[in-house]
Design a binder for these strands. Structure first.
Lengths: 133, 133
DNA sequence: GCTATTATAGATACATAAAGTCCTTAATGG
DNA sequence: CCATTAAGGACTTTATGTATCTATAATAGC
């Protein structure tokens, strides 16, 4: 089990936005170059982040993406769930009457991980970067 | 991101073995019927569990699978990793010099989840079952 | 030793999702 | 009006999971 590569791109793109000037939008062209991805593909990921309410996009000249919330409000979990969705790790395929006890255990573990990912903000990582990278 | 369905099957199969008599092997036929899955497919999953050292198989008449270790030594993590592997959730696709800080955060979260999955034993769940199901 | 039983392994087929491209449309600034 | 930039749909390619079938090997019981 792995996160999709798209999640990796999204996290790096968001980190770049967090480290950038908050008022000036960043274009997908510029982002794609930094990440080494095709602009058209990255564009689709950015649209997901827009729909998740993490960033705002402005089309047209000098347009691009900028954060929607304050830097310190954006957690790793926000970005990851925007790309991966929020479905549970394990869906029980059996039909034993009530809730599956196995699934309950996995759900607990999942929540444990999510708790940490929610507490980690992108800006925490951005502060430890040498420059705008 | 989700665990494969195979992981769900494996967890249920192992739970069944834990709840069964420890000396009498259980055949894949019997297991497959309980789980509602094809025997040939389940067989491949069981072989993975054998290679992971969780169970032992004996071919031939009255053969089948039985636990290799004591009941209370088998954790959820053992089974999950036997099927899913142990690769990290996130591989950074960029080539920024040293280790990726983003990956470090995800790795921390992953370890958090694994810690809980390692502490949960299958036998804990088996005890809460109404019968051998 | 012979036979039935049962796990193992390889080849193959199918479905689904991820990864990526191309083209069109829509919106904004100058 | 025009250049720029995001959004969206259609499509291709590739990889992985799911599943089946067949053949092989090993074991128990007679």
């Amino acid at each position: 089990m792995k996160y999709s590569q798209a999640t990796d791109y999204a996290l790096h793109a968001m980190l770049y936005l967090v480290a950038s000037a908050p008022d000036k939008p960043v274009g997908v062209q510029q982002l794609a170059e930094k990440l080494g991805v095709s602009p058209t593909y990255l564009s689709k990921l950015m649209t997901k982040l827009v729909k998740a309410g993490l960033i705002v996009s402005t089309p047209g000249a000098n347009g691009g993406y900028r954060l929607r919330k304050a830097q310190d409000e954006i957690s790793f979990l926000h970005v990851i769930q925007a790309i991966e969705g929020t479905a549970s790790l394990l869906e029980c395929s059996l039909d034993h009457g009530d809730e599956c006890l196995i699934q309950q255990v996995v759900l607990d573990a999942e929540r444990q991980m999510e708790q940490l990912l929610a507490s980690k903000k992108l800006v925490d990582v951005a502060r430890r970067l040498p420059a705008t990278d």
